[in-house]
Amino acid sequence: MIPINAVFGLGLLIFFIGLFGVLFRKNLVIMLMSLELLLNGVNVLLAGLSYHMRSPRGSIFAIFIIIMAVSEAAVGFGLVLSYFRQKKTYDMDEFNELKG
């Protein structure tokens, strides 16, 4: 039996590393990757709870989260590509005007 505290610690660690990436990296692609990490950290928590409670609900919730993550990645890359087409860079620092 894997201790639930260890699973929680791992999930939270991955979540916060992802949060750090979203907040402190300026590269748009890295930011999107870090967003995926946030969702994965939550998935680890759900899998741990599902394992601990011996119930399939956590897995089902996690599967919905994965579906959502795929949709988010597709739309996010659409945004990144159209941003790159205009600015010719990935850097978030250039993202400072509202005019298209």
């Binding site: 791992l10 680890v44 899998a47 599902s50 394992y51 956590g58 996690a62």
Partner: peptide, 11 residues
Amino acid sequence: GLFGLLGAPFM
């Protein structure tokens, strides 16, 4: 691999 260890093979 972790999900497999946690008894969620489908995940």
